[in-house]
Amino acid sequence: MITEPAASTRRPASTDASFRTSLGVANRRTNLRRRRQRLTAVTCLAPALVFYLAFVVGPWLQSVWISLFDWDGIGDASWVGMANYLEVFTDASLRSSIVNAFGFILFYTVLPLFFGLVLAALTSGARGKGLGIVRTVLFLPQILPLVAVGVIFKWVYSPDGPLNQLLHAVGAGNLATGWLGDFTWAYPSVGLVGTWVTTGLCFLLFLSGIGKIDASLYEAARLDGANPVREFWHITVPGVRGEIGVAVTVTVIAALASFDVVYVMTGGGPGYTTMVPGVQVYQLVFTDNRVGAASALSVVLSVIVVGIVAGVNAVIRRTK
């Protein structure tokens, strides 16, 4: 706007007409540029979108479609409408898998959040090589194949395994039991493996969050005579609420969609005490040949996960 008169004074000879054509050329050039940009965007997006639509979005829509049928996976499918969904919420074993998945949030989210916050608050001021090693070690479970984690803990919990051996060694041998075959203990035993896996991620998330908190807040609190516990609740926790939101999102997904650890450790047993939707879907398809019901369960699971994640993020955004 401001440069326009300057530009016209630089070309005193330009008539009204030639000025208009030069404007037209400029317009066409920006049009051309925009069209080129749009073409580039479409070409760049196409491969990613093709893969995503063909192998994620498409299959999900198909899941919804299949869930409306009674189908054994081989023969003809018959339309049953919402009957499979009704079964998900009324059949005791299907419903218990969803209840168990929600219960895992205690082990995958609540406990790791607590441990992670306390550990991060304790170490935030610490320095030195030892801390680096601790960080590397605590994050380790996060990169392991969960199948291997399941195999390791299946043995740890086994009747002759290290856990019972430890209990005997400290004189608490009467507590020793076959953890994974026990109707009471199998569920928390499997759940704690989730705590073992996700605590490191929470710890490192919070550590990086605390690093971004303004140090003067702590100094001011200390001058006011605040003790470390007050500092923790009034500065550290509010300061990392963004990271808490992220940790909740990631770990809740891990809790609700757990498969590997349960499949390897208990297969959902004893009875249905450790059954989760992932293992239930697998069994319905490959053991019971009830593909429609399996699809309904998987659709319900995905709606729950996406719904919770969206809810958590909405709450976090509002508190910011």
Partner: peptide, 10 residues
Amino acid sequence: ALPHEAIIIP
């Protein structure tokens, strides 16, 4: 957020 369980059947 979509779990793999939701797409593996199709």
